[in-house]
């Protein structure tokens, strides 16, 4: 029996699921509603997001949520019966997630 590499992907999926569960609803309230409503000023946003900790947090959340979503999407497709081209689908989905993380890293640190 070949040892599985799923533990790595599953641990990222789990960490991402937990972080998403803890922070995403609050973040949606902030950026989806409070921000367009004008409750938060530009200066405050700028202070929080240009702070080195803020930059790392943005990148960390992005990485974990993308890893979570990619893993869930991949397995849900198999559950729904898309059982062919598994490797290609996995490469495409995880590749998309990795691309998103790289893009975020460029945004945050460039």
């Amino acid at each position: 029996m070949r040892a599985s590499n799923e533990p790595f992907f599953w641990s990222m999926f789990s960490a991402g699921g937990m972080v998403a569960a803890m922070v995403i609803p609050a973040l949606i309230i902030v950026t989806g509603f409070l921000l367009p409503a004008g409750a938060i000023g530009f200066d405050r946003l700028n202070t929080v997001l240009t702070n080195p900790i803020g930059r790392f947090v943005v990148l960390g959340i992005t990485f974990l949520v993308f890893a979570h979503a990619a893993h869930r999407l991949r397995h849900t497709m198999i559950d729904l019966g898309v059982t062919q081209f598994r490797l290609q689908i996995a490469v495409a989905i995880y590749g998309l997630a990795l691309g998103g993380v790289i893009w975020t890293a460029i945004v945050v640190f460039a």
Partner: peptide, 23 residues
């Protein structure tokens, strides 16, 4: 439950765009 992951990922994309605009 599974579909929620897709919506959260799309939301995060919007969030990162917002961050880049602020920068």
């Amino acid at each position: 439950r599974e579909l929620s992951a897709v919506f959260m990922a799309v939301y995060v994309v919007l969030m990162v765009i917002m961050v880049s605009r602020i920068y």
